[in-house]
Write a protein that binds this DNA or RNA. Sequence first.
DNA 1: ACATAATGCGAGCGATAGCTCACAATTGTC
DNA 2: GACAATTGTGAGCTATCGCTCGCATTATGT
Lengths: 207, 207
Amino acid sequence: MARKPLTNPRKSASQERSRATVDALVEATARILVRDGFDKASTNRIAAEAGVSIGSLYQYYPCKEALVAAVIDRHNQDIMQVVRGAFAEVAVESVESAARKLIAVAIEAHRIDPKLHRVLAEQIPRTGRLKDVEAFNREAHTLFKGYLESHRNELRVADPGLAAFVCVTSIEALAHTAVLRNSEKLSSEAAEALIDEATRLVVGYLK
Amino acid sequence: MARKPLTNPRKSASQERSRATVDALVEATARILVRDGFDKASTNRIAAEAGVSIGSLYQYYPCKEALVAAVIDRHNQDIMQVVRGAFAEVAVESVESAARKLIAVAIEAHRIDPKLHRVLAEQIPRTGRLKDVEAFNREAHTLFKGYLESHRNELRVADPGLAAFVCVTSIEALAHTAVLRNSEKLSSEAAEALIDEATRLVVGYLK
DNA sequence: ACATAATGCGAGCGATAGCTCACAATTGTC
DNA sequence: GACAATTGTGAGCTATCGCTCGCATTATGT
């Protein structure tokens, strides 16, 4: 006996049919963001692109930001899965090979969906979802700090927190800038050269 | 004998009076961007804030983006003036002191008007003025490359262009992130510690 | 088969955006 | 003081936005 049968989005979809609707909406949002940009991603347009009525959209997402946030979350999950895997793989390796692998993975992660990544990076501030991305950054930061602490004997690092900030920020910026500047792709030779340089940068700094 | 007396913005203001109007518009835009954010910066609001009618606004700026672009240009000029000065000052200094000064200046430059810088950094993609900012980056890049080439004997740098990319990108990201993350300011001790670390990072990489 | 809940629909509302245009006021020139 | 150029004005147009709501359709349970 629902008191407010239609107000407030229903949030959860129980049947199979509605899950498809939700997926279609998120995918349509991502597609429009990539193809037309954030400003063109109106709720009416998203609903049309998803082949769903505007009314249905508002049953599952309370506002436009919520839709973009869903896209952001999905993209972040995709990236963090790769990053977490890399840190696990690298935990007991030497600084050189660990740094090299992590840098390679950072570049790889930025290439998962570069056009979407670019739009999201540009538009995240407007969605109020900065907090989520900061949480993501904090996790990368924490993972890196963990590595530094467990390899402290091989390194000369006074403050692992600060060192992790310096390394993560630099690696992220290099990967981000390189991928976005070079028209959404890097030639494999250029990528190799960049990995070499970035590895020298952080290894030289850490020991 | 103007054929189109009122169509197409007049672009140039000849009298004293109209220069004041143009300045008031740019300053009002910056003020609103900082105080209320990009989305609230409607043309009607900017005109009101400037104490100017909406009609006058459209005599000098063809659209909202042009106004924001004017703010961006002004801010970039402010920053580049500091940066150019630093490179001139540092041209004949050792790598250590050069790197240290440039890093300090990068942080300083980000502190010129952090709130405006943040808004602009977030909203530049929407203004179509990415090209201008890329030109700005390219200049920093070129200046750094020039330093590396003229100090090649003291360094071990195979590709000055690539090395400049690595250094400029890292320094910019560290300064940017540090200034924006720490609620628009850095304690002077924290800034010193960051300068020390960043200096070690780039000096260790360059030689 | 029927009742009930879950899901889907889309015309249209109010708000606000960017922007135009016919006109008023000010300034420069003689 | 007269006349034209320059500059300033703001009501209001059109377009689009986010979003609502009453109702239609589909699925579930019995």
